[in-house]
Nucleic acid binder design. Structure first.
Lengths: 225, 225
DNA sequence: AAATCAAGTAACCAATTGTTTACATTTATA
DNA sequence: TATAAATGTAAACAATTGGTTACTTGATTT
């Protein structure tokens, strides 16, 4: 039963779908598909993800996915690209240039940890992409550029730290970057196996706080003179 | 064409399969299935893996997989359990008790790195298991026990380091363990996306050597007084 | 208001996939 | 040596899956 802009089921209060502006909204349809796909790919991997399930969660017809995204593979590509651009964008908003080097680095470690904690899909998507030899990301100039800026940012923090007499000389920014990511990523990525083999709940809030402090210490000791 | 214990194709030299002891060899069949399954699950994940492909690579009839392993899911469980037991067994062989604390820790970091490098399947399998919330590992008492011994080993190295006056006090062995694994695991797990976004071949032998040194430095600075 | 195109739906299809059935052969044992 | 259990094979099955076809409805333009 359709009334104006609303699709309503027989019992009048059970609204299936609300579309305030128009009955047709391609932008919202695309957004819904992308959001649903992100969750589906993150929870089940590229092979495990089901196009039907994405369509159901996004509340769009499966045909629309192929209309806007060509194929499951291409949909995954759009998802992983956006995921990378999102995290790099969030990092830029930290405005680390205004902090002294030590504070900037600590802030970056804290941010990275919190981002992984708040966006567990990111980790899963990156894993999937690596399982598939990063073939979806290969052509993405945009992602490469965003990352170039990020490495530059870390390099400038290191330079500042040396100037301030706080940091050691000649620290490789790429390896530092990788380590900052690694110590958060690994802990959260392997939280399920980790909680079993270490016989403690790694996601317990106390354990999480302790881990963050441990990570900050790791990085600061690594760079300090 | 079958002659005795050998299965031979028409052109006499093209031996398809050699079975020295008997025409039937359940142990070898199981071993072949496990080895093929390990590679298949590692390269394609649990969902992406194909039972047909495992059977083909193992050169056994698909029916045998179900005969010995019940289901694809259970086969994965056997694979992941064995993978964990294998790495813990290899660690024990290092005989770290006979080294001074600092050397023992460096040896452990080197070993972990090399093991991941030589056994990339391990990383992939652990990822898969975590994607599935570690449900296959949950019941494995054996794996938990093996890991308990491992944490004990690291704890004893830490104690020795404190006694020797080399290490700081009160370092958490679980978080140290996690960090030792993390700095190797992350780099190698994400080598494909990493090589793209950092615009350099992370698997280049020079880059690998540099990374290992970086990791040793990270851990030693972390624990030292 | 007619025509045109974009947006959306339902049903279907060919291929694939994990799993099973029915049957054959080898090995161990009484 | 007869018999049962273990090991192996070929073929098929039911369910699922990514992708498509044919069609309808709504929005925009002239």
């Amino acid at each position: 039963m359709k009334i104006g802009l609303l699709t309503v089921s027989k019992s009048c209060c059970d609204i299936e779908r609300v579309n305030l502006s128009r009955t047709r909204d391609p932008e919202s349809t695309k957004r819904n598909i992308l959001a649903a796909a992100k969750m589906e790919f993150a929870t089940k991997g590229l092979s495990g993800a089901r196009v039907d399930d994405i369509a159901n969660v996004a509340k769009v017809n499966k045909r629309m996915i192929y209309h806007y995204f060509e194929s499951k593979e291409n949909l995954f590509k759009q998802v992983i690209e956006k995921a990378y651009l999102d995290i790099r964008e969030a990092e830029l908003k930290l405005n680390l240039e205004h902090l002294d080097a030590k504070s900037a680095l600590e802030t970056l470690v804290r941010f990275t940890w919190k981002y992984y904690l708040d966006n567990p899909e990111f980790i899963r998507l990156v894993n999937s992409e690596n399982l598939h030899h990063a073939r979806h990301l290969k052509a993405s100039k945009e992602v490469v550029q965003a990352n170039r800026n990020y490495v530059g940012l870390v390099q400038s923090i290191l330079d500042r730290g040396v100037q301030e007499g706080e940091f050691r000389d000649q620290i490789d920014p790429v390896n530092l970057n990788i380590t900052i990511a690694a110590i958060g990523y690994y802990y959260l990525n392997n939280r399920f196996t980790g909680s079993i083999i270490f016989e403690q709940d790694l996601m317990d809030s106390e354990a999480l706080d302790k881990r963050l402090e441990f990570n900050i210490e790791t990085i600061l000791k690594l760079v300090s003179r």
